[in-house]
Design a protein around this nucleic acid. Sequence first.
DNA 1: TTAGCAATCCCTGGAAAAGAGGATATTTGG
DNA 2: CCAAATATCCTCTTTTCCAGGGATTGCTAA
Lengths: 203, 203
Amino acid sequence: MKVFIVDDHYMVVEGIRSLLQNEKNIEWLGHAMNAASCLAFLSQQQPDIILMDINLPDKSGIDLCKEVIEKYPSVAVIGLSTFNQQSFIQKMIDNGASGYVLKNATQEELCEAIDAVMAGKQYLSHAAAQMLRSNDTGERPILTRREIEVLALIAEGMTNNEIAQKLFISSTTVDTHRKNLLSKFAARNTATLIKMAVQLQFV
Amino acid sequence: MKVFIVDDHYMVVEGIRSLLQNEKNIEWLGHAMNAASCLAFLSQQQPDIILMDINLPDKSGIDLCKEVIEKYPSVAVIGLSTFNQQSFIQKMIDNGASGYVLKNATQEELCEAIDAVMAGKQYLSHAAAQMLRSNDTGERPILTRREIEVLALIAEGMTNNEIAQKLFISSTTVDTHRKNLLSKFAARNTATLIKMAVQLQFV
DNA sequence: TTAGCAATCCCTGGAAAAGAGGATATTTGG
DNA sequence: CCAAATATCCTCTTTTCCAGGGATTGCTAA
């Protein structure tokens, strides 16, 4: 089985390499530190499995996953991430990933995941699976591009009018985005909105 | 040099072990997955250097760092994290850490950090150092007890009137505290205030 | 002991945001 | 293609916030 990894954290790459190097039936094809070089690699050769971090410098792993699977349907993607944030896991699976492993997985878990995926099954880390079952909180609301933009400017301390000028839209539009943000975050006002946004790393 | 690592991500532990195993003058003492087992280990033997993640399941690495250095002053701590959030880095350094390395550091960087720290110097990852320099206003304003109380309630989304009722003070007093907070944080409005408060871990 | 700060209280007026409606293009996905 | 999502724009009322002031008490550190 040819395995390739996309992660911008050198230590994680080394960690996985070290975990997999003893496995006889696994061939290590190398790694990429970002989405661009991953795609460049894939145009040359295709692994059986890509272990893919969700956070990449140039593109989210969620988007990259989709792109890769569209172009190379024979490649299976296993999502990798530090946190088990339910919305990410769900989006990754929605975009065609065959599995999801948290970075605190053990060697056994990782090998199990690879075996399962190669056998055509779907694999979810124990914690990840639990997350998906308990559809409870911890969810990041799904924001549109514009909303993220507006949110960032609100956090910068700009008023609706200032944001409107900056984005070349009407201040009432900004206000609408603001209301939608409040509603998506279930926040009463700007204070809670920004608190949650920072905590969920939108800002 | 005896090196120990505290990180709940197996892959990171393996990665660092793999990066350091070729270094002749480094003795690998093992690892802990949480703060509790780290402290248990330290009661038995003390490494020269602890590589410590800032996100641990039972306690933040920032707090653990402080505790470890108080109890075992001979031990040097190097902070480890995925993101370069200046507030975390600053807190880690404030709590006595000798260095800070991002998880996308190369083998060279890591060894450089260990060498520097053993030589009694402070080491900051390039990106981390840049963060601290750029954000020279990274200092936490000094708040009074009451201000911290009010700040927390503002972050909860409460209005001046609600806070006044909760704290049994007049709403105009709350407003004064609020104004002092804005001034201490040099924030234009609630949005920036709360953003900074969360980033600087007041909330 | 005196200066400084924390915490409390008070006022006014204007700016901004929240809340509640509704409306219309333009993408985008199935 | 059509429905849904997204982005845009509008009015009106109420509430909250922001920016100026000024003032009293009590504690503490120089």
